[in-house]
């Protein structure tokens, strides 16, 4: 279920350079599931479109957004202070399918700014075993301490300054981690590699996709991904990332 409402900023801090941790008190908290996101509306009238930002964590009556400043909209959000009003629409999207992990060994993968969207999943997922594999550029391991509270964490860094040198899949190989299901969010090359890995290993992978969006409610058809089969809503081989996604079975999308 989605609602459109004005939330109130509880707190905001810059947790590492360019990455902000924003907590907003909103009724959307009660409606949200791991892997869903909210549309956040800028106030500046020249910046007309809402920004899709994933929900990193849900606490009682509040959502936590951890986002990178990449442009005008997110730059405006970075200036929000406790008590400020912020217009939201949410929660948007399908979220991760928790039921797919029941009785299975699950690996949760996040890369870069794809790390925050799997935090709430790490808390809520009930699996026979679960490990989070987080991929970072360098040893600035933002949010890792939050994950440590709920789940066993492995790290990959590009230069090897922390954890395994390489990417999140290199961690699985280096540490001989076997799994039955993968949940992932991160940059497209990482998701493509995970799709390939899962197909080779014949395991399930649920990947969270990103795309430029306008409406966030499934009306504008801006944010589509090509699908293997004809999509029931579009009647063509395209699914809406904001509505049928953002999480897809990796086998069902052409990325």
């Amino acid at each position: 279920m989605k609602i459109s409402e004005t939330g109130k900023v509880v707190s905001q801090k810059e947790i590492t350079k360019g990455i902000f941790d924003l907590v907003i008190s909103t009724k959307i908290a009660e409606l949200s599931k791991p892997g869903q996101f909210v549309m956040v509306y800028p106030k500046d009238g020249t910046t007309i479109l809402p920004r899709p930002i994933s929900i990193a964590e849900v606490t009682s009556g509040a959502i936590r957004l951890v986002y990178r400043v990449v442009g005008k909209g997110t730059n405006e959000f970075s200036g929000l202070k406790a008590g400020d009003a912020v217009r939201l629409l949410g929660s948007v999207g399908n979220g991760f399918p928790l039921e797919k992990a029941v009785g299975k060994r699950a690996v949760l993968m996040g890369g870069g700014i794809g790390v925050p969207p799997i935090l709430e999943l790490s808390k809520e997922l009930l699996a026979s075993s679960k490990i989070a594999v987080l991929g970072y550029r360098d040893n600035d391991l933002f949010l890792k301490e939050d994950f440590d509270k709920y789940i066993e964490v492995k790290v990959a860094t590009e230069g090897g300054s922390a954890g395994t040198r390489g990417n999140v899949l290199d961690v699985l190989r280096a540490e001989h981690i076997e799994c039955d299901v993968i949940y992932a969010c991160g940059p497209m090359p990482m998701l493509r590699a995970i799709k390939k890995y899962a197909e080779e290993k014949n395991i399930e992978a649920f990947i969270s996709l990103e795309e430029r969006m306008a409406c966030g409610v499934g009306a504008c058809l801006g944010c589509v991904v090509k699908t293997k089969e004809k999509d029931h809503h579009s009647n063509v081989n395209n699914a809406r990332i904001c509505t049928e996604g953002p999480v897809f079975d990796a086998r069902e999308v052409e990325i």
Partner: peptide, 21 residues
């Protein structure tokens, strides 16, 4: 049925947006 264009299909511009759905 029409499949439409490749993505990105939308972007923001000053005071507006462009779409090529």
């Amino acid at each position: 049925p029409w499949t439409g264009n490749d993505t990105p299909r939308v972007c923001e511009v000053y005071g507006g947006m462009l779409n090529a759905i």
